[in-house]
Design a protein around this nucleic acid. Structure first.
Lengths: 189, 189
DNA sequence: AAAGTGATTGCACTTAGTGCAATCTACTCC
DNA sequence: GGAGTAGATTGCACTAAGTGCAATCACTTT
């Protein structure tokens, strides 16, 4: 057994990313990707359910990470606070994939198909967070809303973060959280 | 000229909804829809860019309605308050389409493709709201977040509303808004 | 060597969606 | 009435996504 080399799935991803970066998402066919990875179109579908999923292979792991961090936060921490903390920790761990994140963001910005898939992943993450909050005996409405607001904060801050700010993700999220406060506080009672 | 009858676009929509209701979304092909409307597959694509769009033909009008209502709200009303009001008025106008809304909701719940498209439409609406808030001299971050929170509130309340509650949509949204308050208020300063 | 296991592949097929040229329809103008 | 024209509809040929199934290949076990 020689040096380690990426399996079929990894080779497909690498090949795809390279092609996407060069030609854009929609100009690359699945056959192209498979060929570039030394495989066939049919094999591609043994590893990915569809073309978009190449760019979201990590979504499941991220969701799991967020949920785990959230679970480890004491129950006496307020719901939204806990969500923000969990997302900020899990998000920081993505620093390794900064380069990939940027490419991904740019591809998504240019392609509706990809934005659609991205949004579904976000909703999935939101739901997972809400489920976790329910276990903390947060009411259904508040669980769902806290999850959604947390995700909104995360998206906003994360975008700023990978767009080259030297700030800390958790600082950015904290700042954004205060913005939310000031938006909501003004509302009549 | 005789009595008015729906044009090609309307016939396609009606035929599609009937088929979707009967067989579900994915079991119906575009050829099926076209045939049921007395047209051909090619003609379908002269009226809709794709199959999902049948269920979202009204999205543009709704977005316009929301933006118009938002514009008509005095600038001294707080951003989130204005968003909630605009959505609640525009939403109430959808009462006419209750039956359609329910079918649509059920179809979306069962089909990822449709959920994807639904989310994109929601983001489009959110962006339109944020743009409108920017014109009110709300800061970029707050505009985006107020729009997102408003949409979250709307979605939650609207779902409850069409699910058969006899309550007013605006009341439901108001209640939900208070939930948001209590979520955010607890956060540490 | 035989047998088995899992990954890869070939093939045939359905469906979405597009571009282009032809045709059909209704309406206008003479 | 008849020629013409604009717009809607259609046929056709094509690309590409995605699926089901059976065959084959590579590699390990016995």
């Amino acid at each position: 057994m020689g040096r380690w080399e990426p399996g079929a799935q990894g080779r497909l991803q690498l090949a795809a990313l390279e092609l996407f970066a060069k030609r854009g998402y929609s100009a690359v066919t699945i056959a192209d990707i498979a060929e570039a990875a030394g495989l066939t179109k049919r094999t591609f579908f043994n590893h990915f359910p569809d073309k978009r999923e190449i760019l979201f292979a990590g979504a499941g792991a991220f969701e799991e990470s967020v949920v785990n961090h959230l679970r480890s936060i004491p129950h006496d921490v307020a719901a939204l606070e806990a969500v923000v903390q969990a997302l900020s920790i899990a998000g920081s761990e993505l620093a390794r994939y900064r380069e990939f994140s940027i490419l991904r963001r740019d591809l998504i910005a240019l392609n509706v198909e990809l934005r659609e898939r991205d949004l579904v992943k976000m909703v999935s993450l939101t739901d997972a967070i809400a489920v976790e909050l329910l276990k903390r005996r947060v009411g259904a409405t508040q669980a769902s809303l806290a999850a959604q607001i947390g995700i909104s904060i995360f998206n906003w801050a994360y975008d700023k973060w990978i767009s080259g700010n030297d700030l800390d993700l958790s600082e950015l999220m904290r700042t954004t959280l205060f913005d939310v406060r000031s938006i909501v506080d003004v509302v009549a009672t």
